[in-house]
Design a binder for these strands. Structure first.
Lengths: 142, 142
DNA sequence: CTTGAACCTCTAGCAGCTAGAACATTTAGA
DNA sequence: TCTAAATGTTCTAGCTGCTAGAGGTTCAAG
C-alpha cells in the first residue's frame, strides 16, 4: 500500500495533480487509513502511469478519459482507440507545421539585427510591419 | 476615429480581447465618446497590430510588453529586442523537438493497430507500457 | 423618431495544473 | 513512550490568454 507521495514518485506526478485527477474523476477514490490518508495499490499505479504517459503524448484529459473507458471495456472496438490516436497525431502535425513557419520568420528577424539602438532595430521593425509576414490571421502556434 | 469593432476587424482581434489588453495595460485607455464608447486612432491600430503579430509568433504577453517598451524608447539597445527574439526562437525549437518525438511514438502506436477489440489494442497497450517510451518524465508537449 | 446593431460593465469559465494557508496524521529516533 | 519532522489533509485562489454571457446603453441609418 502506497501513500499519495510514493505513488507520485513512482509515476512522476505531483501530489496535487493526483488529487486533481481524483477530483475530476480520472482517478478513482482510493481507500483511506483510519486517520483519513489515501492509500493506493498496483491498479492505481497502472492507471496513473497510463494517464501520465498519454499526457506526455499530448492527449487532452477528455481523450484520456475515453481511452481509459475503452481500456475498461475490453470487448469494445479497437478502432475507437485508434481514431483517438489518429486525431491526436493530426493535432501534433498541425502544431509542427505552424511552429515551422514561426521558426522561419523568427530566424529572419534575428538574422537582420544590426546591433544599433532600437530606432533601427530589425526585430521591432518586422513586428511593426505585417506585410511580409508568412503567417496568416489564424490561430496562434501554441 | 474607429470604434472598437472596426479596430478589431482591421487587426484580426476580437472585441473582448482588445478590452482585455486594455485591462492588463498592454493597450492604452482610449478616448471616449460622450456616451462612453471607445474611439481609436492610427497609433492604436499600429500598436495592436504589433501585439497581434507578436502573438502569432508565439511571444508571451510579458515579452510583448518588453518589446513595446523598447519600441517606445528608441535610444535603448537593439540587443535587448534581439535577445527576446532569440529566447523565443529557442522556445519554438524546443517545442518542435518535443513534438517530433511525440509524432514518432504516435505513429508507431497507430501503425500497429490490429483492428480487433480493445483487449489486444496496440494503442492502449503502448499507453499501458511505459518501458519502450522515447519521451522522458519531463514537461508535456504543449 | 424608431429600430437594431454595436457598444458598455461585470462576472465567470476554459485547460491543466500549481501554490499556499492552516491543520492532522504518521513514523522514526531518543 | 514521547516528540519532532515529514508527510498527509481540505479549501481556496492563481496562472495564461483569452472567451462567453447577462443585462443594460448608445449610435447611426432610414
Amino acid at each position: 500500500m502506497l501513500t499519495i507521495g510514493s505513488l507520485g514518485k513512482k509515476t512522476g506526478t505531483k501530489v496535487q495533480t493526483v488529487r486533481y485527477y481524483e477530483q475530476i474523476g480520472l482517478m478513482p477514490e482510493p481507500g483511506r487509513t483510519e486517520g483519513g490518508q489515501r492509500r493506493y495499490g498496483d491498479a492505481e499505479v497502472d492507471r496513473l502511469s497510463f494517464i501520465r504517459h498519454a499526457r506526455q503524448l499530448g492527449f487532452p484529459l477528455e481523450a484520456i478519459r475515453e481511452l481509459l473507458d475503452l481500456s475498461d471495456n475490453p470487448d469494445r472496438s479497437c478502432h475507437e482507440a485508434d481514431s483517438i490516436a489518429r486525431r491526436q497525431l493530426k493535432q501534433v502535425e498541425l502544431r509542427m507545421d505552424r511552429l515551422k513557419a514561426l521558426r522561419t520568420e523568427l530566424k529572419r528577424m534575428i538574422h537582420e539585427c544590426s546591433g544599433g539602438n532600437t530606432a533601427d532595430c530589425k526585430v521591432l521593425e518586422v513586428l511593426r510591419d505585417h506585410s511580409e509576414c508568412l503567417t496568416d490571421h489564424d490561430e496562434i502556434g501554441a
